[in-house]
Design a protein around this nucleic acid. Sequence first.
DNA 1: AAGACGAAAGTGGTTGA
DNA 2: TCAACAACTTTCGTCTT
Length: 308
Amino acid sequence: MSEFVKKCPECAGINLFLNKEKGEVICKDCGLVVEEKMVDFTQEWRDLDSEESDRKRRTGAPMTYTQYDQGLGTEVGQKADLYKLGSKDKNKFFRLRKWQYRISTAIERNLKLALAELKRVSSYLKLPKSVEEEAARIYTLAVQRGLVRGRSMESVVAGSLYAACRRHEVPRTLDELSEASGIEKKEVGRTYRFVTRELGITILPSNPADYIARFASSLKLSAETQSKAVEILEMAQKAELTSGRGPTGIAAAALYVSALIHGEKRTQREVADVAGVTEVTIRNRYKELLEKLDLEKEIKKTKKKKKE
DNA sequence: AAGACGAAAGTGGTTGA
DNA sequence: TCAACAACTTTCGTCTT
């Protein structure tokens, strides 16, 4: 937990809950996502003046994929090794080094640009650092395998980010990524599938529950409503209502129902907007939920309470 | 008047021959 | 590669609050 946030700015509650994997701090009282882009404070950084720094600093720069050469660098050989080689090998050596130089500078140039773009999109979406790192790693692999050829750099960046989000269970919808990156939604999806397939990255099918926290907080729904929605989701999964359906639609419907139950009514339109689906989809899911899980009683209960 | 509901036609993606 | 198919969207008319 960051030491800077101790109270929820929305309701001044102190039940803040840190989800490390998602890089989010959530207020358990009102469901507000207090802090999304977590910073890791565990690294020891000391301010040393430049004279002292060489002697006293205990680490180098952290190795990171968000730097184009991962903060390290490699070259083919040094001149010192040359004396071992005959003239034929010498030529070979120079040729190799030339090629290595060409290839690596081409890749590095690409990576520099791409990682700048990646950072831009990532900060636009307020993604946690861990996801950004993962996306950078994926992109680096993609470049090294020559998967960018024939595709725009930006679309591969978007695809990598989307994959990283999925892996870290910090779901952003394709629409959101599309908006942030300026790449068409289907193009993002295409490169996402291509990259993950080529790199053999396995992605768990996204879980509707992962969307609940974010949707609930942008709809300003209470924590009870939020956890009720998660309950409903679990029931729905047992009733096999979830397979094959879009996870956002289900999440949205569960949230809509649970809002009704807790008397915090939101219109279908409102829920649909934050979830990025249409009212119709919510209606269909909603209908299924009511039929299979008989939630009607609970809704009627709260209606009666209102009259009193 | 706004929201909820449902029907019908259209879209993009997956699957299986 | 093509057609069938399911999920989702768009659009529009009707009912409810």
